[in-house]
Amino acid sequence: MAIERRKNNFQPDWLGKTLAAVFPGLAFAFVCVGFYAWYGPGDIHSGNKTQFHMWLFTPIWLGVLSVVYLFKSARQAWLTLGSITVLLYAVFFLLRSVA
C-alpha cells in the first residue's frame, strides 16, 4: 500500500531529474537535430544550414530541461527520455545505413 501511494506521489528529485535532462535529454536534442539535418528542408552541405543546426539544438534542449521537472520521479524521467533517445538513435542510424 505504501508503494501504491508512492507511485502517485510527485517527487521533486532535483538532482536526478536535472541529470536526466543533462544526459539522455542532451542526446535526445542532438538526435532531433540529426534528423532535421538529413530529412529537413535544405541541402545538408550548405554551411548556412549547418549554422542553423547549431542554433536549433539549444531551444530543443532547453525545452527538455524546462519540462523534465514535470516527471513524477527521476526514475521515470530517465526511463522515458532514455528509451525515446535510444529508439531515435537506432532509427536514425538504421535509416542512414540504408540510404
Binding site: 539535418a37 554551411g47 547549431m54
Partner: peptide, 25 residues
C-alpha cells in the same frame, strides 16, 4: 538562447558532427 549559442557553439558543433558521418560540417 543566443548566449548559450555564443558560449558553446564549438561543443554543439562537435555534437552535431556525429550525425554528419564522414561529411564535413
Amino acid at each position: 538562447w543566443t548566449v548559450i549559442g555564443f558560449a558553446f557553439h564549438d561543443l554543439i558543433y562537435d555534437g552535431i558532427s556525429v550525425f554528419y558521418g564522414d561529411k564535413p560540417l
